[in-house]
């Protein structure tokens, strides 16, 4: 392939998406008139583009994401509006910070030198059931009643291990180990449930 031919091949995707202009567009069109293989390549790219464009974008955070942004923007604004502490308060905070640092170092050293006896296994929020399956993050619908949510979790052999978090989701785990396919199917069922706004796999 000559350099010019290669250049034109590299421009073809942008002819296919309609963004090529001017001399480059004319050069591509000239080659298209002359070269059957080049026309087939364009057909392939157009089909590829149509296929990619037809892909469903799926679920996005939507209103939930906007609510989280509003909260963060409010927090930003509040930080900006806080009055500056008077200079003579600095001394108190410096002493408090030093005390906190000493306490932290002490706590860390106790943890580091303590014998390791625990495991990384999750237990339910009540601390009674050991769970082995994958963990999901679930935003429940605000209108969902507790009984219906409990029934759903029981039917799917799920249990709450943490939550609600600061942004409002629960961490929920499958009690049993699941294969990748079963996990995906479960995730799809959760997202289809009217009680759930969004479910994400961890």
């Amino acid at each position: 392939m000559t350099d010019t031919a290669k250049d034109l091949e590299q421009l073809l995707p942008f002819y296919a998406n309609g963004t090529l202009e001017g001399i480059e567009k004319e050069a591509v069109e000239k080659r298209l008139q002359e070269d059957e293989a080049f026309r087939l390549e364009l057909d392939y790219l157009k089909a590829l583009r149509a296929n990619i464009k037809a892909e469903d974008m799926g679920q996005s955070p939507g209103e939930l994401g906007l609510a989280r942004l509003h909260k963060a923007i409010d927090a930003d604004a509040n930080v900006g509006n806080l009055p500056k502490p008077p200079a003579n308060e600095n001394r108190f905070w410096r002493i408090a910070a030093i005390a906190a640092t000493i306490a932290l170092i002490f706590a860390l050293s106790v943890q580091l030198y303590a014998p390791i006896t625990g495991s990384d296994d999750y237990v339910t929020a009540s601390g009674t059931t050991k769970v082995e399956g994958p963990v999901f993050q679930i935003f429940f619908e605000a209108e969902g009643n507790q009984g219906a949510i409990s029934s759903l979790l029981a039917a799917e052999k799920l249990t709450i291990i943490e939550g609600p978090t600061e942004i409002g989701y629960y961490r929920v785990a499958a009690i049993e180990k699941l294969s990748n396919n079963t996990r995906q199917e479960l995730l799809a069922r959760l997202n289809a449930s009217p009680l759930i706004q969004e479910a994400l796999a961890e």
């Binding site: 995707p13 296919a16 998406n17 963004t19 583009r49």
Partner: peptide, 12 residues
Amino acid sequence: VVQLAFYEDMSY
């Protein structure tokens, strides 16, 4: 680049 070119129809 594939996504930007074919999903978002952007120029190079």
